[in-house]
């Protein structure tokens, strides 16, 4: 036991910096995923067929490709094509665009979950299209969209470890654990503390999402 605590005490700065790198990767990718995902989600429910097709293609392509392949394409592939981007950009863009496909689906099904009668009713009450959207549809859609988005955030925290383990080698929590492991050969101890770091992130995200869900739930 004392060995375990000793490892943490000695290498706390490394673990902490890894923790914050993971946190930053997730925060940036989340911003990309939400903004691109909303856009693609809007494309999927657009009135124009061509736009819908673009949205569907995006979702099917990015949802079915492994994240690691996206990382290779964006980092090595684009570099050979003459578009050199750094590991941070490649990593967060890959994770963000990958998750965006799922975000788009969540948003689409959230909008569809609001009954068509709601739109008809609000339009017949004389609300403009825009007010119908902002006052009637989106608040109700948010309620159904929050739980899947929460799940995606948790998946994203876990997927962020792929960025550190891949050729990008961002110094995230997993990478730090591997560096410490290679230096000290204390495999169990270093991975224990890295696991604790990941569990802090995923479990607290779970907790926040559950609270939000309960608050948004319709009370009957």
């Amino acid at each position: 036991m004392s060995v375990l605590l000793d490892v943490l005490r000695r290498h706390f700065p490394e673990f902490l910096s890894g923790f914050f790198v993971t946190f930053r990767v997730v925060a940036i990718s989340l911003a990309i995923a939400i903004s691109v995902g909303t856009l693609v989600g809007a494309l999927r429910v657009a009135p124009l067929r061509a736009l819908r097709w673009i949205g569907t293609t995006y979702v099917e392509a990015f949802r079915n490709v492994p994240l690691l392949v996206l990382i290779f394409i964006s980092f090595l592939g684009l570099r050979r094509a003459g578009i050199g981007i750094g590991p941070w950009v490649a990593g967060t863009a890959s994770l963000g665009l990958y998750t965006a496909a799922y975000v788009a689906e969540a948003i689409r099904s959230g909008v569809f979950a609001v009954g068509k009668g709601q739109i008809d009713a609000s339009l017949s009450l004389g609300l403009t299209y825009r007010r119908t959207m902002t006052k009637i549809i989106l608040p109700q859609a948010a309620r159904t969209v929050i739980p899947p988005l929460g799940n995606l955030l948790i998946a994203m925290i876990k997927n962020s470890a792929i960025i550190g383990a891949s050729i990008l080698a961002l110094p995230d929590l997993l990478k730090q654990a591997r560096i410490l492991q290679a230096r000290t050969f204390q495999t169990n101890e270093t991975f224990f503390w890295a696991a604790a770091g990941y569990l802090v992130l995923t479990l607290s995200a779970t907790f926040v999402v559950r609270r939000l869900e309960r608050r948004l739930a319709i009370r009957r």
Binding site: A161, I162, A165, T187
Partner: peptide
């Protein structure tokens, strides 16, 4: 525990441990 850890983390740990 297993659901909330990154998969690549588990794989790397097992390959070393």
């Amino acid at each position: 525990v297993w659901r909330n850890l990154p998969l690549i983390f588990v794989i790397l740990y097992l390959s070393l441990g």
